[in-house]
Design a protein around this nucleic acid. Structure first.
Length: 250
DNA sequence: ATGGCATTGCAACAATGA
């Protein structure tokens, strides 16, 4: 089973850059999308259904902002919208699809780069999401948590760890949360099979960051440690967003 | 320390992002 996670930074903009063709070519079984920035009525749903996907959209209540989705070739047993939190559900950050053998969570963690208030929101999300997923894992041991975590775990995950030591996304508290997260029973499916440096999933649009590979690795597919990871990688050459997609085969 | 770029809403430029 192949799963892709992708922060598309606006699904309508991504579609203009042939995102549909990309999906057709890669043919994943499950697709987790973040920052769709659209409501279902604004999305050409049929384009995805034609490829064979059951589509589940979870938009923010705020137009043009955030929003996540799961596309899947197999119809899930059930889909859960949200994470039992008023603000994070208002912002459309978490959607979960349960299958016979796996449960897939798609999450868009808040950014803390726009100031102290949003950094506090991010910390609140980290706390809440940790407890929420731990509880979920009790009844869904084969849990896979895909998404834009907005955190670089280790120095190898960011092009300049020294100059970014005070940057939101690479703060000690955030990195400690990632330690705790993986220790709780998840594997970083990309890093487990790709130990080389200079592999990122996000680049600033500014100052030629992508061309010069000055990026951050902030998108992850965390797989429950009892699951076998057959292969994993990123789509750093396919450009539909300021992020690239990541994939895992299990 | 700052600016840089792109998407979206809404019809101006403001909000947001990492």
């Amino acid at each position: 089973m192949k799963i892709i996670t992708y922060n598309v930074n606006g699904i309508r903009a991504a579609i203009k850059k042939d995102f549909i063709g990309f999906l057709e070519r890669e043919n994943p079984d499950v697709v987790c999308l973040q920052e769709i920035k659209a409501e279902e009525s604004q999305i050409p749903v049929l384009d995805f259904e034609t490829l064979g996907y059951h589509c589940y959209w979870y938009s923010a209540q705020k137009k043009g902002y955030s929003g996540v989705a799961i596309l899947t070739k197999t119809k899930p047993m059930h889909v859960d919208f949200g994470c039992d939190h008023e603000l994070f559900d208002f912002e459309g950050r978490v959607i979960t699809a349960s299958f016979k053998d796996y449960t897939v969570v798609c999450a868009y963690f808040p950014s803390g780069t726009t100031g102290e208030i949003r950094q506090e929101v991010k910390y609140a999300f980290l706390d809440h999401f940790y407890s929420w997923t731990q509880k979920l894992k009790e009844n869904n041991p084969n849990l896979i948590v895909c998404g834009d975590y907005n955190i670089c775990h280790k120095p190898i995950d960011i092009h300049n760890p020294v100059s970014n030591k005070n940057s939101s996304g690479f703060l000690p508290e955030e990195r400690a949360w990632m330690d705790k997260w993986f220790k709780s029973g998840f594997i970083d499916s990309f890093r487990a099979l790709n130990p080389e440096p200079h592999q990122y999933t996000w680049w600033s649009y500014r100052a030629g960051a992508r061309k010069n590979n000055k990026g951050w690795r902030i998108d992850y597919i965390s797989t429950a440690e009892n699951l076998e990871i057959k292969d994993s990688g990123t789509y750093h050459n396919d450009i539909h967003s300021d992020h690239c997609g990541s994939w895992v085969a299990i």
